[in-house]
């Protein structure tokens, strides 16, 4: 049971593209995570206004 092997130049190209997309997605996830940590540590409001006015959030100055 060997792994998937590239049998054509096309497969190598697809692999490099998939790898690039995977790295880009991993970077995106890392940035969203890091941003979340920064904003939570600072105590930013994590929930914005929806269709209902919330007096408590107005006081927070957001």
């Amino acid at each position: 049971m060997s792994g998937i092997r590239a049998t054509h130049e096309l497969h190598a190209r697809r692999f490099s593209r998939n790898l690039g997309v995977a790295v880009a997605l991993a970077v995106f996830v890392a940035i969203v995570f890091a941003l979340t940590v920064v904003k939570m540590k600072r105590g930013d409001p994590l929930q914005g206004f929806d269709h209902v006015v919330r007096p408590g959030m107005e006081d927070s100055g957001s």
């Binding site: 096309l10 190209r13 593209r17 690039g20």
Partner: peptide, 10 residues
């Protein structure tokens, strides 16, 4: 192959 871009193309 005609429409198989590499990551570099993107």
């Amino acid at each position: 192959q005609e429409h198989e871009p590499t990551f570099g193309d993107y």
